[in-house]
Every structure is written in structure tokens, then in C-alpha cells.
Simulated assay, not measured.
Amino acid sequence: MSITQQYLLDAYRARSRGEPAPPAPGTYDFQAVREWRDERRFRAVLAGRPARGRIRDALGRWLGARRRRLT
């Protein structure tokens, strides 16, 4: 059963029971991703690591070391 079919079935059941309809698929995706990112940043701070720019910093160190080896 696809997500759309499950949503339509749930909406039909809610309507027949007089309950509010469930949220459409994808409604809270951005909120979930934002909360996941905030949790990752929070855990990084608790662990004593920088909360932002870690990938860019790591790539910069890697590319910088590589450039020094090539010259």
C-alpha cells in the first residue's frame, strides 16, 4: 500500500468516525529535518565539538594538506 493510499484510507476512517483528518504526507517533513539538525548540533556542543561548519572545516584541512604535499 502506498503512502497516498494509506492517507486516503485514514482520512476516510476519520471522516466516518467524526474525527479530524490526519495531516497529509509530507506536511511536517521540514520540521522533522530541522529538529534532527538541531539535535545533532546540540549533541556536538555537549561533546565539545563545533556545532556548525564541521564538514567545511574538515574539507579545508584535507585540501590544505593535499595542496602542501603537491607543492
Rank of each mutant, 00 (worst) to 15 (best):
T4I: 14
R68V: 00
G64I: 00
A21G: 00
S16V: 09
R15T: 07
W36G: 02
D10Y: 02
Q31R: 13
E39M: 07
A11G: 03
R54H: 06
S2P: 04
A51M: 04
G26C: 05
D38R: 09
L9G: 06
R37I: 07
D38F: 01
S16N: 09
S16Y: 01
G64C: 03
W62T: 12
Q5L: 15
G64T: 02
R17P: 00
Y12H: 15
P25T: 01
D10L: 07
P50Y: 01
P50K: 03
R66T: 00
F30R: 15
G64L: 02
A32G: 09
Y7K: 05
T27G: 02
L59G: 07
R40C: 06
P50D: 04
A32W: 08
P22N: 03
G26F: 03
E35R: 15
G60T: 11
A24P: 01
A11R: 04
I55M: 07
V45R: 14
G60N: 15
G53D: 01
G53W: 00
Q6G: 08
R41V: 00
R61A: 10
A65K: 08
L63E: 14
R13K: 13
L8W: 10
G48S: 03
D38M: 06
L70E: 05
P20N: 14
E39C: 02
A44E: 00
Q5I: 13
P20F: 07
L8I: 10
T71R: 00
S16L: 10
A11S: 10
I55W: 08
L63T: 13
A21V: 08
I3D: 14
R40Q: 14
P23T: 01
R43L: 12
G48P: 03
R52N: 07
R49K: 12
T4A: 11
T4C: 06
I55R: 05
W62V: 09
R68C: 00
L46G: 04
G53K: 04
A11N: 05
W36F: 09
R54Q: 14
G48A: 03
E35P: 02
G48K: 01
I3A: 15
A14F: 02
R17S: 03
L63Y: 11
Q31D: 13
P25H: 04
W62K: 11
D57F: 04
P20H: 09
R69W: 01
V33R: 11
G48C: 06
R37L: 12
Y28N: 10
P23E: 03
Q31P: 00
P23R: 04
V45G: 04
W62S: 06
L59E: 12
A11F: 05
P20D: 12
P50C: 03
R49E: 07
E19D: 13
A58C: 11
G53M: 05
R56A: 11
I3F: 10
L63P: 02
V45E: 12
